[in-house]
């Protein structure tokens, strides 16, 4: 156990990329000449591709996800001397159903462990967009909510207290009007802050499901934590098992799910440091 932790910590450094290179390769992402990888998630019709186009400009190309007939767009950009790759995930309302689109988005966030996941939401329909947002936050703790179409929200006389929302969700919330290219700089800054560790996400986790589910989840989570101590989202994995998700069942059986590492590398190295000084 200790040894495991040490070797794990041995690879850690300040500002190290958090993404999972072997898994990304399996997902068909080429990480040559790229420092960080960003995933773009969101409901359909939220202007996700406009945000994508704004960030990448002409440096993008489209292809298919490996083995699937779903188109994938990815592009690159540079910010603050770092080279970013950004992957546009299929637009979905949820990550819980069984459609191919949702499976792809889910797998990418879970197994690829992007350094930051940007969730693009339609400000005029925030409540329904929170469905996906909350689900993403169950899987990853490094996320940004990009409230797009703020101008449309204003037209519909909707005002959103973004500071409060950021506090509630525990992640940065950026106001944007992607079609006017507004908010893109703030988004980039925010991405940089998370990557550099200046902003620590404390994502909202749904902690009170029905008593019966909570009871089952706890029993299962204990077992999972015992076998895969480093897994950052064991609760979510337990939930997927209760839903009979074959992909998760397979990756538990093969142990592949153990390759998901904790994002909080700084915490880990701090622990080691404390141990050494004590």
């Amino acid at each position: 156990m200790n040894l495991n932790r040490l070797t794990h910590a041995g690879n850690q450094c300040e500002n190290c990329p958090a993404h999972n290179i072997p898994n990304l390769k399996k997902l068909g992402i080429n990480m040559d000449k790229v420092d960080q990888v960003i995933a773009l998630a969101g409901n359909p019709n939220t202007g996700k591709s406009t945000v994508f186009n704004n960030l990448t400009g002409l440096k993008q190309h489209t292809g298919n996800w490996p083995g699937k007939t779903v188109t994938r767009a990815e592009g690159t950009f540079e910010y603050n001397t770092k080279r970013f790759k950004i992957v546009d995930l299929p637009g979905t309302y949820s990550l819980l159903s069984t459609s191919t689109d949702e499976e792809i988005a889910r797998d990418f966030i879970l197994f690829g462990q992007p350094d930051v996941t940007v969730i693009v939401a339609d400000s005029t329909r925030l409540e329904r967009n929170l469905n996906l947002t909350l689900q993403v936050l169950e899987i990853t703790d490094r996320a940004i909510l990009c409230l797009n179409l703020m101008d449309e929200a204003a037209r519909h006389r909707i005002s959103i207290d973004t500071k409060q929302l950021s506090k509630e969700l525990g992640i940065p919330v950026i106001e944007a009007e992607a079609r006017q290219k507004k908010g893109m700089n703030e988004l980039l800054q925010s991405i940089d802050e998370i990557i550099s560790g200046r902003y620590k996400c404390k994502p909202f986790r749904m902690n009170k499901l029905s008593p019966q589910i909570e009871h089952s989840l706890k029993q299962l989570e204990v077992l999972i934590k015992k076998e895969f101590p480093n897994m950052p989202n064991s609760r979510w994995v337990a939930l997927r098992l209760l839903e009979g998700d074959q992909k998760i069942i397979d990756s538990i059986r093969s142990g592949e799910i153990g390759l998901i590492h904790s994002y909080n590398q700084n915490d880990l190295s701090n622990n080691i440091y404390e141990k050494n000084t004590v």
Binding site: Y93, S94, L96, S97, T98, E127, R128, N131
Partner: peptide, 11 residues
């Protein structure tokens, strides 16, 4: 099945 999940997802 899918129909049900879709309706739930829609809220």
């Amino acid at each position: 099945g899918k129909q049900r999940r879709r309706l739930l997802d829609l809220g």
